[in-house]
């Protein structure tokens, strides 16, 4: 799977590919910084286009967003928008969820889960705008 990128592609293809990863990387970081979330929605499809299979793309996106989020958190902190006390209301439970989620990612079909999330997200977006 990793080998696809170098022997088979010509040079222009590689340059195009690098350009695309630069632009989408930029967009992913930008959105994640702007909204404090959401970088993954750009990262996952991009990683899939880079040739990663679906589950690998999802898992790898977590690492990418993790790295970006560290920098985002630092800047939020400098601007006085970090409140660890409030975050601690959720973090312990989140960790439980993370362990469950990571251990099951290998096994589940995420298609239905994705649709459910999509609906929740759309309804919430409408609620926020109205």
């Amino acid at each position: 799977m990793y080998f696809h990128s170098f022997p088979s592609h010509n040079k222009t293809g590689d340059i195009m590919k690098n350009k695309m990863s630069f632009i989408f990387g930029l967009l992913c970081g930008f959105l994640n910084g702007l909204f404090g979330s959401g970088g993954g929605t750009v990262a996952v499809p991009c990683l899939e286009k880079s040739g990663l299979e679906v589950k690998k793309a999802h898992a790898s996106s977590v690492l990418l967003i993790f790295v970006l989020s560290i920098f985002t958190a630092i800047i939020y902190f400098l601007n006085g928008n970090l409140d660890l006390g409030l975050a601690m209301d959720y973090i312990p439970y989140g960790i439980v969820g993370a362990v469950i989620g990571s251990l099951t990612l290998k096994k589940i079909s995420s298609d239905i889960l994705k649709k459910i999330f999509a609906i929740i997200i759309i309804i919430s977006g409408v609620r926020i705008l109205l």
Binding site: G36, G38, A59, I65, Y93, G94, V99, G101, S102, F117
Partner: peptide, 11 residues
């Protein structure tokens, strides 16, 4: 936590 760990837009 579950959604975030799966890269499902759970953030």
């Amino acid at each position: 936590g579950i959604a975030a760990s799966m890269g499902l837009g759970g953030g």
